[in-house]
Each structure stands twice: as C-alpha cells, then as structure tokens.
Write a protein that binds this DNA or RNA. Structure first.
Length: 492
DNA sequence: CGCGTTTGACCCGCGC
DNA sequence: GCGCGGGTCAAACGCG
C-alpha cells in the first residue's frame, strides 16, 4: 500500500488518541482503496516507464510503489558497502518502532505494515513513553552488538536512501531536534569553507540514522541539517516532531506518480502544500526545540520553500525554514510565528516570482528545481479563495504557462495527491482542541470540491494553492491571529 | 577510566 | 583506469 507515512501518523493519532474522529478513519479507508488501485495502475505503467532515468527509472518506480509505512527499504542482495552501512541495525527490533525516511522494497503485507506503523506512533505518543536511555542498552552493549554478523544486518537499508535536508537559521553547532547524536566524522566539503560534520543517532545503539550538519556557504547563519535513515527505536517524544515532518516530506518524494509524471517542481509543490497546510502552530521554537507540548501531536511544519534533488544518487528533499513569509492579506500568514517575521530575507526569496517567470526556477547551487510555495502570490490565493473566480479560465490561461495548467490538472487529479490532501486537512482539523471532528467532513468536502473545480477547469494554480484555499475556507471567520488556534492542552 | 571528539586514512561510487 | 569527492572508520586525544 502506498500510504504516505505522515498520513498514517495522522490517522493513527486520531484513531488512538481521538477515536471519536470518525472522519479520519473514513479518510484512511478511502486512502487504502485508492492506493490499492494506484498500485495496480502503477504496475501497469511501469512497463512504459522502464527507460526513464533517475527517480523515474523502472526500478525506483517499483521501489517507490512498494514503499512501506516505515519508508525503510529492504533490499535483498546488498552490496558490500550497504552491508557495512547498515551493520548496526538490529533486525530483531520491533518493526513497529520504525519511523524514518526510507523505503521498504519487500512486498510486505501492507495492511500489517499499517498496523505496525500505528503501533510505532502510539509508542511515541502514549503516556508510557520512557526516556531512550532507559529503553536501550548502554554503549557497552552497543560495542558487543557491533560484532553481529553482517549477514544478519538490517534489511531495511536501501541503495539510495531518501534524505531530508532542513535549512534553518541556527547559531548553535547543531539543531536541537530531540535525538541524541554522536559525531563520528568531519570533512571539508567541496565548495564550502565550513566543514561538514557527520553524526549518528545514539538513542539506540543500533540506530542507522545519520545526519550531516553543515553551514551554508552563502549564509553562515544558516545551518543545513540532512537526515538519512530510519530510527529503529522508539523516538524520544521530543524527537517525534522532526521525524514526522521528515517522514512526510520523504513520503511525498517517494510518490512515483507525482515525481515521474509531473517533475520535481510539482512534487515540491505537493510537499510544500502539506507542510504549509499542516503547520498551524509552527514557530521556530517549536520546530527546533520541539517542546513536549507541541510534539504530542503529529505536527508538520511550515516550510516556505522546498526542493527535491537527487544529489549523489540520494533523492533529497530540502525544507527551507529560513525563508520568511511575506506580508499577506490572507489569514494564512497568521499561522507563523513572529520569529519568522524577524528573519532576514531568504536567498531563495527570489523564487517568489515563480508565477511570473515560469514554472520552475533553477537552483544554481544544486541543480535542483525549486518551486516557491510560500504565500507571496496573493492574487492567486485570493483568486482561488473565491469559488467564482475558480471558473475564470481566462485569468488562469492568460497568466500561466500551459505546462503549469496541464501539470496542475494532472497532479490535482492524482488520487494520491488527494489522499495527501485529505491527510493534511485531517491534520489541521485535529489540531484544534475542540470542534475539529465536527469540521473534518466540512474540510474534506471543501477540499474535494476545490480539487474538482480546479481539475475540471484546468485552473493554472499550483497544487499548494488548493490547500491554502481549503484551509482558508475552513476559517473564514478568523482573523490573522487566530486562523490556526493552538490546541488548548496537550493530551498527555 | 569512560566517553565523546578529532582527524588522518581508507573505502567506495561516480564521472571523465 | 584514474582521479575526485563523499562518507566512514578507528586510533589518538581531551575532558570530566
């Protein structure tokens, strides 16, 4: 089944912690059916895409289709390097505790995987969560376990792990993301005067998760943290937020129907749609310090910009926390913290001219294609905010390239995207302390309506705009400061 | 003494 | 095949 990870996290969240939210369950069931169909269709499509390169290759397309809920890849017949790379992973560990970025190539029982994923999430959100140091053996055990036969190493690694790179302004050496890390290397990277530091997760002795930390060469105040791998242990509650966020981003990256059919820019748009929409309470303090209060819910965070690349054969999503939202007449801007508004302009802010300059803007540094999904394009948001305007074909066709119109139609008609959208909506609704359940169906109805409108009319709006519109429609009565009300209390 | 960091060596993949 | 660059290892080192 091809359920986005963060979707399952979200659904689990409601099924376990708020079992009264029937709409979330409904969404889950619908998504399962959609993905069953998609899997079948994609298998058929793979025959036509066998010659595609990169992430669109047949092999990777197949891998993506078999993505597990853990997003960890299991590849039989690993290379020597891969075996070495994952030698610490403990295959005996609870599968349900995995929460990361990778894909699982094994044709696992997806229904079971879904349950496993839910179990994993519950372990992190329940009131019984323990500190990692109490749950995992000390370093002595780790040393002993390092000698485990490599042939028995984890089967959850993959040749080309998905990475999630996060750009954030940070004065400290590393971001406090809630996990425990041990530095194991440092190297000078080409084109950057600042060394790149390599860390591995030490929450669990066998955790294969790595992260790289490096200052941005162009702006030393920006810290680029790249996560790779899957946690094979219960995450500290303070770390679940980042894990959920990166997983969600990675899951989108691994959606072959998006990546192969519409190009990175649109995938990026979809990713940003999620992150934009599901970040009602985002501020940098929450994102980087991960207070217990906020991570008790499966938040996603707001990333004004995101991009996808395949550097070094690693499909990578870059989430940019450095770009401030521009002032906006729309309520959407209110969801972001004052801290963001104090940020200096992002070097990527020039991409805000996306709709005027073309569908994709090339990142000269990385060869990526970026699609700005911030809130700079107010005319389009406002345009979509009003249903009447959505039928204004003249507007869209005059303003946007045909490629965008076509791509938009394709992506919005993609069931997977709709699933993701439903997830995002559910996430948002669930973030409301009260009345969220009552609004869930309304939100989904709005989303569905907007999708249909935009799809049928081929309105040249980026996919993220639908989310923006939907969320705005959900809160028409709320002012800038309350469009995304904070939950009243943490549940546990 | 234990643990984490530093740092040079080594391995590997990729491009030419 | 070779060189380059990314990534990892592991001994040496420093600190509490």
């Amino acid at each position: 089944m091809v359920l986005p990870v963060h979707f399952l996290v979200v659904c689990h969240h409601y099924c376990v912690q708020d079992q009264k939210l029937e709409s979330a369950k409904k969404v889950l069931e619908e998504a399962r059916e959609e993905n069953k169909m998609l899997k079948f269709l994609d298998i058929l499509q793979q025959g036509n895409s066998a010659n595609a390169k990169g992430v669109t290759s047949h092999e990777e397309s197949e891998e993506s289709e078999l993505v597990s809920l853990s997003l960890g890849i299991s590849v039989k017949g690993k290379t020597k390097g891969e075996r070495k790379h994952c030698k610490r992973e403990d295959e005996g560990m609870d599968k349900g505790l995995r929460l990361g970025l990778d894909m699982n190539l094994d044709p696992v029982d997806h229904a079971e995987a879904a349950n496993v994923s839910s179990t994993a999430s519950s372990s992190g959100e329940g009131g019984k969560e323990e500190e990692p140091s109490e749950m995992w053996p000390p370093s002595k055990v780790f040393k002993a376990m390092k000698n485990v036969d490599k042939s028995e190493a984890s089967q959850n690694d993959q040749p080309k792990k998905t990475r999630v790179s996060i750009r954030a302004r940070c004065d400290t050496q590393t971001m406090n993301d809630g996990c425990q890390w041990r530095k194991y290397g440092q190297k000078m990277a080409k084109g950057n005067p600042c060394p790149r530091a390599y860390y591995r997760c030490t929450v669990s002795p066998l955790c294969p998760v790595r992260k790289q930390v490096q200052r941005c060469a162009e702006d030393m105040s920006i810290l680029i943290t790249t996560y790779e791998g899957i946690h094979n242990h219960p995450l500290p509650i303070s770390a679940t937020a980042m894990a959920c966020t990166t997983s969600a981003a990675a899951s989108m990256l691994q959606s072959p129907s998006l990546s192969s059919q519409h190009g990175h820019g649109l995938v990026n748009s979809a990713i940003s749609s999620i992150t934009n929409f599901t970040a009602p309470n985002y501020n940098l303090d929450n994102a980087l310090n991960f207070s217990t209060y906020h991570v008790s819910r499966p938040h996603q965070f707001y990333f004004p910009n995101s991009s996808i690349s395949s550097l070094n054969s690693h499909p990578t999503i870059t989430l940019d926390l450095t770009a401030p939202p521009t002032s906006s007449n729309l309520n959407f801007s209110s969801g972001f913290s004052p801290l963001q508004s104090s940020m200096s302009p992002s070097p990527w802010s020039s991409y805000s001219s996306y709709f005027n300059s073309g569908p994709l803007t090339h990142n000269r540094n990385h060869g990526d294609y970026l699609l700005n999904t911030g809130h700079q394009n107010q005319p389009y948001l406002e345009h979509l905010h009003h249903p009447i305007c959505t039928s204004n074909n003249n507007f869209s066709q005059r303003s946007l390239p045909d490629s965008i119109i076509a791509a938009t139609k394709a992506i919005t008609s993609n069931p997977k995207f709709q699933s993701v959208l439903a997830t995002a909506l559910t996430t948002y609704v669930g973030n409301e302390a009260g009345g969220g359940r009552l609004r869930a169906n309304h939100v989904l109805e709005n989303a569905e309506l907007n999708l249909k409108l935009c799809s049928e009319n081929t309105i040249g709006c980026a996919s993220s705009r639908y989310l923006n519109v939907s969320s705005s429609a959900l809160n028409p009565q709320q002012g800038n400061s309350s469009i995304f009300p904070l939950p009243s209390l943490p549940e546990q």
